[in-house]
């Protein structure tokens, strides 16, 4: 659905996007991750045709952006960063205008506006000026405008930024609902959100893609040292447990610490050791330690993100 080949975009001397290539098949939801200034927004702006690439090719819905920019724009619904809207139009007026400007027939436009209003739960504010809306409603108006013409592709630039947790959850729910029928590429720096709703993640740093894959793949990729937490019911056992665990092969370090009547041992494993949970559990069983918990604080998407973009 989206095909980017060796895309470069410069602003004067600075290179915002330095030759990235990726492909997004139909009906995949892809999270676009990266620190601020990594080139996410620039990439999205090039995909929408708002910016032209310095070099490289962009294909959207099978159309070449350089030869058929209008066709590309027709198949894209776009929510720009910071969600600019015409503040002095009423919600319904704005959506009707979007439909008209996109050339929808008036009957089709009416039903499109109606269904966008329903989908984004804007019924309560249709007669209000956009300038008076709360941030959550504004965001929904932006989303409504993006899905209005029923595009096969949605490009959303930080759709949940600046929203409170409830509003963000609503927006995520809407994206999850849309993912059954649309190809979605959205940028974010909220990792938990991306993990929850994306099939695949692209991590971009300094204008280049540094990693891509499903959230699980990326987490597995960081096969470095793991951190295990062993929680015991008796504070007094912590030191003893730590000493024994240190002797286990593959353990780098084991630090006991006491917390609120419980004892915990933080175990760092060596990178090549693999999963040591079974071994540690066997040891605990043998020594009859009162184990409350044993868990791996395995590499999270966040660790991967940090290690790649730090």
């Amino acid at each position: 659905m989206i095909h980017v080949d060796n895309l470069v975009r410069r602003y004067g001397e600075t290179t915002a996007v330095a030759g990235i290539s990726f492909e997004i098949p139909a009906r995949e939801v892809v999270g676009f991750l990266g620190p601020n200034g990594a080139g996410k927004t620039t990439t999205l702006k090039v995909l929408t045709g708002f910016l032209l690439p310095s070099s490289g090719t962009v294909k959207v819905a099978g159309l070449d952006a350089s030869t058929d920019p209008l066709g590309c724009r027709r198949s894209i619904g776009y929510l720009p960063e910071n969600n600019p809207l015409y503040e002095d139009l009423e919600v319904a007026e704005y959506l009707e205008w979007c439909a008209a400007a996109r050339g929808l027939e008036s009957a089709k436009a009416r039903s499109a506006v109606k269904s966008a209003i329903e989908r984004c739960a804007l019924g309560a504010v249709i007669g209000k000026d956009i300038g008076q809306l709360s941030k959550g409603f504004r965001q929904r108006v932006g989303l409504a405008a993006a899905i209005l013409h029923d595009p096969p592709i949605l490009l959303l630039d930080e759709p949940t930024s600046g929203l409170d947790p409830n509003q963000a959850a609503e927006v995520r729910a809407l994206i999850t609902e849309l993912k059954k029928e649309k190809t979605v590429l959205y940028s974010s720096h909220i990792l938990s959100e991306v993990k929850a709703s994306c099939d695949r993640v692209l991590i971009i740093h300094r204008g280049q893609i540094v990693a891509q894959g499903s959230p699980a793949e990326l987490e597995a990729r960081s096969t470095g040292a793991q951190r295990l937490e062993l929680v015991l019911a008796e504070e007094s056992k912590a030191r003893e447990a730590a000493d024994f665990i240190r002797a286990v092969e593959g353990v780098e370090s084991a630090e006991p610490r006491a917390a609120g009547g419980e004892a915990a041992v933080t175990i760092m494993t060596r990178a090549e050791a693999g999963d040591l949970r079974a071994k540690i559990f066997a040891l605990a069983a043998e020594k009859r330690w009162p184990v409350l918990e044993l868990y791996r604080e395995g590499a999270t998407l966040e660790d991967v993100f940090r290690s790649l973009t730090a």
């Binding site: 724009r73 027709r74 996109r102």
Partner: peptide, 14 residues
């Protein structure tokens, strides 16, 4: 200033 130029320039209009 408002950034709405981005809305305009991403519409399917010349």
């Amino acid at each position: 200033k408002a950034g709405t130029i981005e809305l305009l320039q991403t519409l399917p209009v010349e």
